[in-house]
Design a binder for these strands. Structure first.
Length: 264
DNA sequence: TTATATGTTCGATA
DNA sequence: TTATCGAACATATA
């Protein structure tokens, strides 16, 4: 579930569930070490006894401050999420559990294990190391235009890079392109100022709407492309142009062909 | 059985 | 050096 809005909703979930709580114990439930970029022993010795004080999100990266020492960084890959539980069986695909001092348990679950759990000195330091840009919600139009400016790669691939601005993922990129009527393989350098502006504003709007609805797709405004794109259902506004699937930059992509055409 | 999945990183190539 | 492309990662489901 994790693009910018999903991670923002997860951040709020984390705050409601665990802020101010102390970690009594950290449990691991995965044989692979892949997820844990910081060794388990170090995670354990740092987190056990520490209290969660505040959180910060940049794009799809979630950072959690402790009352002492480094920050905890969580990334959710393709299939990660957080789930609070108490006196129940371990949620499916649980890889790690924070046992909190109020008796609750917070599970980090991730089916495909593309996620990340690690300690880092600070969000700023991490951002500099990994070289990703500012959060898309904090981006100016000018910076957006400059970032896409002269790129020759597919427009959709450019939107998915985290380097210049962070948080756009596959469904949001498709949604933005649908909304402004651009083809995912369009070349960024061919866009004019008004197209770039429209794209930027569409992104801001889509993300805000998704957050407002807690990323429950069914509650999204009527006509949102995400609710049609994969079913290859007809979009109600385009009954004569069936949704078409293609692969762009290695990612499954969906368009309404009559609305999203390549420029000549 | 084969294709696909809401992400990132790494190696090869230009 | 920088930009771009494709494969790889691990697992489930249609």
């Amino acid at each position: 579930m994790p693009e910018l809005p999903e991670v923002e909703v997860m951040r709020r979930y984390f705050e409601a569930a665990a802020l101010g709580q102390k970690v009594e114990r950290l449990e691991f439930h995965d044989k692979l070490d892949k997820l844990f970029k910081t060794p388990r022993e170090e995670l354990k010795s740092t987190l056990e006894g520490a209290r969660f004080t505040h959180t910060r999100r940049i794009g799809k990266y979630l950072f959690i401050a402790l009352d002492k020492g480094p920050w905890l960084h969580l990334h959710f890959g393709m299939t990660g999420n957080l789930l609070l539980f108490r006196n129940q069986d371990l949620p499916k695909y649980t890889r790690m559990v924070f046992v909190l001092d109020n008796g609750d348990q917070l599970a980090y679950c991730d089916l495909r294990k593309f996620g990340v759990v690690e300690l880092t000195e600070s969000p700023e330091r991490y951002q500099a190391e990994k070289k990703f840009g500012p959060d898309f919600l904090e981006l100016s139009l000018e910076a957006f235009v400059k970032a896409l400016g002269n790129k020759k790669i597919a427009l959709k691939s450019a939107l998915l890079e985290q380097k210049h601005f962070a948080g756009i993922g596959n469904w949001i990129a498709d949604e933005m392109l649908f909304e402004v009527g651009l083809h995912p393989e369009e070349k960024p350098f061919k866009l004019n100022q008004s197209e770039l502006t429209a794209l930027f504003q569409a992104g801001q709007k889509i993300i805000q709407q998704a957050i407002d609805k807690d990323t429950h797709y069914r509650d999204f405004p009527e006509g949102m492309f995400v609710n049609y794109r994969k079913k290859k259902a007809l979009h109600p506004l385009f009954p004569d142009s069936p949704i078409e699937g293609l692969v762009v930059g290695g990612r499954g992509s969906f368009i309404v062909p009559s609305k999203q055409k390549l420029k000549p």
